[in-house]
């Protein structure tokens, strides 16, 4: 209810290792993007504009951090930004590419570049730069992050609610609750009633259970809910017929990075 004129905040988008699907998800809400342009100046939106600025009020980081040069670039962005927001599952927790963190680098090289690369990465100087790709990091492993917009892709409604809050000078708040809450409110049949398995019980809500609404299951792309009862969930998956290896795989699809952080691996 406060009415004061302020200069338009500058917001920027930066890409790292990701598919840019989060930016596309936002661009798909054309009407809202136009409204947004009334209220903020968007800079460095590679998908939409090509202008550059030096300081940013809100920097949205998309993608995981795979190379040291990316980390350097990210540190520079952090130094020039008031708020840094990790945009989407890659930036928040490494996404599927972080699964490679569980495989020895030489194994990865063999899979990607052929069997002969297995040893050559160690013996041939030409290959040494590949070592820079050996660990996939989330944004908050490299710089302090103010807010996380979870999901693969991120949810435009959450993006807007965060921008609205920051424009109003408020603290955005995303209540810690599992996907089941939104799924039930949508009156969905529980995936387990269909003989399938779901990560919804231990996954951060905010997506309005979009995957289950559309006949799929929750794969946990929004990350593990803090304090979730993982023991009970693993037991539930076991009782639903999954082997321990399958359960690990289910967890590691999106939550691998979060998992290694939780267990301190």
């Amino acid at each position: 209810m406060k009415d004061t004129e302020k200069p338009k905040p500058k917001i920027a988008f930066f890409d790292f290792a990701g598919c840019e699907g989060c930016q596309l998800a936002l661009l798909n809400c054309e009407d809202v993007v136009l409204d947004l342009l009334e209220l903020v100046d968007i800079v460095e939106f590679r998908e939409a504009l090509s202008e550059k600025a030096h300081r940013y009020d809100i920097s949205f980081i998309e993608g995981s951090i795979n190379r040291e040069e990316d980390a350097q670039r990210l540190r520079d962005i952090r130094a020039r930004s008031k708020y840094v927001v990790a945009l989407g599952a890659c930036a928040c927790m490494g996404n599927v590419q972080a699964r490679s963190n569980f495989v020895a680098p030489a194994e990865n090289f063999a899979v990607v570049y052929g069997e002969e690369a297995r040893n050559r990465v160690q013996t041939d100087r030409e290959y040494w730069p590949l070592w820079a790709h050996t660990r996939v990091r989330s944004v908050d492993e490299v710089v302090p992050v103010d807010y996380q917009l979870r999901g693969c892709p991120m949810i435009p409604e959450e993006f807007l609610s965060l921008v609205k809050s920051l424009l109003a000078g408020s603290i955005p708040f995303f209540p810690p609750k599992p996907v089941c809450v939104e799924c039930k409110m949508n009156c969905n049949e529980c995936v387990f009633d269909q003989g399938r398995t779901c990560m919804g019980q231990v996954t951060y809500a905010g997506c309005n259970a979009v995957c289950i609404n559309n006949g799929y299951v929750c794969d946990g792309c929004r990350g593990l809910l803090p304090g979730a009862n993982l023991d009970a969930h693993r037991q539930l998956l076991r009782e639903s017929g999954l082997t321990d290896a399958q359960i690990e795989s289910r967890y590691r699809l999106f939550c691998s990075q979060a998992e290694t952080k939780h267990t301190g691996q």
Partner: peptide, 8 residues
Amino acid sequence: ERCFSCGT
């Protein structure tokens, strides 16, 4: 013991 606090 097996509750997810999911509110279902």
